[in-house]
Structures are given as structure tokens and as C-alpha cells.
Design a binder for these strands. Sequence first.
DNA 1: CACACGTCCTGGTAGC
DNA 2: TGCTACCAGGACGTGT
Length: 307
Amino acid sequence: MPELPEVETVRDGLARHVLGRTVAGVDVHRDYSVRRHTGGPLDLAGRLAGRRFEAAVRRGKFLWVVLDAPGTDHPDAALLAHLGMSGQLLVRSAAELEQGAAHPHLRVRVRLSDGGALDFVDQRTFGHLSVTDLVPTADGAPGGLGSDLPLLPEPAVHIARDLLDPALDREDLVRRLRARRTGLKRALLDQTLVSGIGNIYADEGLWRARLHYARPTDTLRRPEVERALDGAAEVMRAALAQGGTSFDALYVNVNGQSGYFDRSLAVYGQVGRPCPRCGALVRRDEFMNRSSFTCPVCQPRPRNARF
DNA sequence: CACACGTCCTGGTAGC
DNA sequence: TGCTACCAGGACGTGT
């Protein structure tokens, strides 16, 4: 599943492969994939045609490509993407487009003026593309990683900074997390508190921190919160170094190559296998209509569990 | 039929 | 009372 490391891998790929290139036109194969573009598919195509890609930026799991604003050097719009569970952005060469059959889950094709294309492929269709206005950030710092512009796509203004963002106010995050009255994992997954963490890295980070997902946030001691945040940040950095996580070929990076961090997972998806630290058997619990994996010894369930 | 799950939305609560 | 922030859970969608 694309979480922060996978999205960052895609962002880096876009930065290296599509910046400076110009949109010729857009083919929307599945309207649902552009459902969050308010003007509909035709409007999206109209706002992209003729625009040049200026920068590839990411905050949490949100990714956007800044568009040039002809006649000015003040960009005011971006192509915004969220990959959902299975979204991919694939850079296609003109030669590829001529010979290869279209991917069965191709949802949107952004045709480029040089004959290539940027394809949005998404089997499970939780992802989406839109063209949106850019608005100033609340703190005046860059909107995300990949550009110095203090701008954010309007649909992402409520998304908090992520753990790899230099402008993250860590003290404020710790304070806000401890002020919550919920379970630790639920807080880590809340993108308005801290962004980029999904089910996989939440479980892996909590395992590193030796904390149970149901620990009540308002009873956590400050060092425990630091451990939880450090655990998530470390596991995401490790995954990023290996190009992201992949389980079932649903995720591939911008060139179509899969990551292989899944070989390094300690608990996620490892039910019944030994904990790499203590050997106890990893367990799976139902949690928020999804799964949580823990080591029952390293991460004992608290008596005052909260979900 | 259960399961994979990130985000949006709705209806609710707590506290000032 | 009204406001704000926060909280919980259902819905969405496709394919194995």
C-alpha cells in the first residue's frame, strides 16, 4: 500500500522524469478517478492542456505537480494525486505507447507534447487525480518536500506535516497527541495530526517502539510518544532507502519497479511467525475494520486499552 | 463471502 | 447556549 515512503519514491521519480515537460491533452478513462475534481473530466483536461510541470511535491500521502502559470512566475495551480490503496503513476515513452496494449486498470492518461505520457493506473480506485488551486501555507514554510514554495493544494490544507518534513513542529505534535483521548494507533493514523503513516508503518513503528496500539494517548508518557514517533520515522526512512514496500504488485514506482521492503517487515502480515526480537508468535487483531499485528510479548495489551 | 484499507462524511461528545 | 475541536464508525470501490 502506498504510504509515505512509497509516495516519496513516486515523487522522486516524477521530479526526475516529468519536470519541464508539457501537457498535450488528457484522456479520462474512468470518471470516478477524477471525482474530486469539481469541474468534471472535461474541466480537468482543460486546466491541464498546455501547462508545464514545474515541481513535484509531497506532504504525507498527498502528491502534487506544480503547473506553470504563463506570463508570471507565481504558480497558482497543481495536478494533485492521491494513490489510495493501489494507485500508480507510470511514465510512458512514446515508443511504449505505440506498441504496448493499455494497462487494464489505466484510469487517466496525461498525454505529453513530446509523445510520452503520465499514466494513472489504479486497480482498487481509492486513488484520485484533480487540478486544484494552490493556497498559502499557514506557517509560511514550504508546503511539502520537493519545492520551497509556501503553497498547498486547497484539498490538502487540513493534512498535517509528516515526520520527514523539516518544518514539522515536533513539540507541538507531541503535545497535541497527548491531549487526545483515543488509542495510540488511531492517533498515528490521523492525517490531521501527523501525516504519511498508514496501517503498515503504524504497526511496524509501534513494534519498534514496543508499544501496544491500544495504549490510551492521554496516559502516554512523553518518552513513549517520542519512541512511537521515532519508530514510525525510522521504519519509513528504512523503507524509503529500499524504494518502498510492495506486497502483491499493487504498488510499483514511477518506472514500474516494485519496492522490496516487505522482506524486512517484523510484524505486519506476519501472523503466526516468530517476532524477530523475542520469538513469540505474532498475533493479528481486528481494529477499525482492518488489521493490527503485534508481538504479544514486546507489546503487551494494556489493561486500560482504548481503540 | 470475507478481506485488503485511506479518506470522506455524518452524527455525536467534551469542554470552554 | 453556542462554538470548536475532537472522536467513532460506515461507505466507497475492485479483485482475490
